[in-house]
């Protein structure tokens, strides 16, 4: 078996805040092989975005990163800014939630794509413009030549996200990180964008990390899912296995809390009581214990490790799995 494309080893991210040190990511291990898709699911504040920033080495200045982010055999944390700059684009690319803020509003779409191609692939202006139009066509933008001359504000939200994807794909990255790529979009457009990402991922044999709060989004479109809660990965399994047999009560409760299309109107939802713990005040035991319906005394005493005691390919951090 070949070495994984990305391997995250014991990564923690700490941020100083007025209320104390905030541990946004807490000793996370993850691996991802080339051409595979990993879904990272969690609610706001669970650390999923900080984890993606840690992989991209785009953490806020005050943040402190521990652990190793191995990408293609190199530790990204040890690379110079110049080496990182050369890596972003041809190797690592990202699509953010809000395409309005990730695109520069005063430059045309064309300028933004062409610049990326010229800088990273050393293409000439004419070749880059031609390639830019091809890329826009590939992500499903009609009349690409005309679009190149337009500004981001002249496009709809879905079209802007397509442009952001085209820019991310322009240098044929080995890993694409999509951070809530459809959260700002309408339902009918969300499906189109997810389809586009899946199609391009397969066609290019690109690895992808799909970060989302929506279990529905990862269900049909990932190979493996990692569920995060309070900075930790609390369950990780191949997607079909995860949905077939959820071990961690949090994952189970999260799925149950989603209104289902096949249940009758006015069916009460099994809500998760309470709210996530204060990240500046870590608990000694399982972070989910205060909200867990199966909680026992030992849950509050010690943190369960993320492990696979049955050797069935399903990792979970729970003393009393389902």
């Amino acid at each position: 078996m070949s070495a994984p494309l990305l391997s995250i080893e014991g990564v923690s991210v700490e941020l100083p805040t007025p209320r104390g040190l905030l541990r946004a990511v807490d000793r996370v291990d993850l691996t991802l092989e080339a051409g595979r898709t990993l879904g990272v699911v969690g609610e706001s504040g669970c650390g999923k975005t900080m984890l993606s920033r840690a992989i991209l080495q785009l953490l806020p200045k005050r943040a402190k990163l521990d652990g190793r982010v191995m990408f293609g055999g190199r530790d990204l944390a040890g690379l110079s800014r110049e080496a990182l700059r050369r890596l972003r684009g041809p190797e690592l690319a990202v699509v953010f939630q809000d395409p309005m803020t990730s695109l520069n509003p005063v430059l045309t779409i064309g300028t933004q794509i062409v610049e990326t191609l010229q800088v990273h692939l050393g293409m000439s202006g004419i070749a880059a413009t031609k390639r830019g139009a091809e890329l826009l066509a590939a992500v499903g933008i009609p009349a690409p030549e005309q679009r190149l001359r337009q500004y981001p504000s002249q496009l709809s939200g879905g079209m802007r996200q397509r442009v952001a994807i085209a820019i991310a794909l322009s240098c044929e990255p080995k890993l694409l990180i999509a951070d809530e790529p459809t959260t700002a979009l309408d339902v009918t457009v969300q499906a189109q964008i997810l389809d586009l990402l899946a199609r391009e991922q397969q066609r290019r044999h690109m690895a992808m990390i799909l970060i989302t709060h929506d279990l529905g989004v990862v269900a049909g479109r990932t190979d493996e899912v990692a569920v995060m809660y309070a900075g930790r990965v609390v369950e990780r399994a191949p997607t079909p296995r995860l949905f077939a047999h959820m071990r961690m009560p949090y994952t189970e409760a999260l799925l149950a809390a989603i209104p289902r299309l096949d249940s009758a109107p006015h069916t009460p939802l099994p809500a998760i009581g309470g709210r996530p713990p204060d990240p500046t005040r870590p608990l000694p035991g399982c972070s989910f214990a205060p909200r867990c319906r199966y909680v026992e005394d030992d849950c509050r005493a010690a943190k369960p490790p993320l492990a696979d005691p049955e050797r069935a390919g399903s990792l979970y951090a729970c003393w009393h799995p389902r």
Partner: peptide, 18 residues
């Protein structure tokens, strides 16, 4: 709208070409 809703079940293939 109904077809576009992502279903949290990997055995349901997402509708494509909406």
């Amino acid at each position: 709208l109904l077809d576009a809703i992502p279903v949290p079940d990997p055995t349901v293939r997402p509708a494509t070409n909406l």
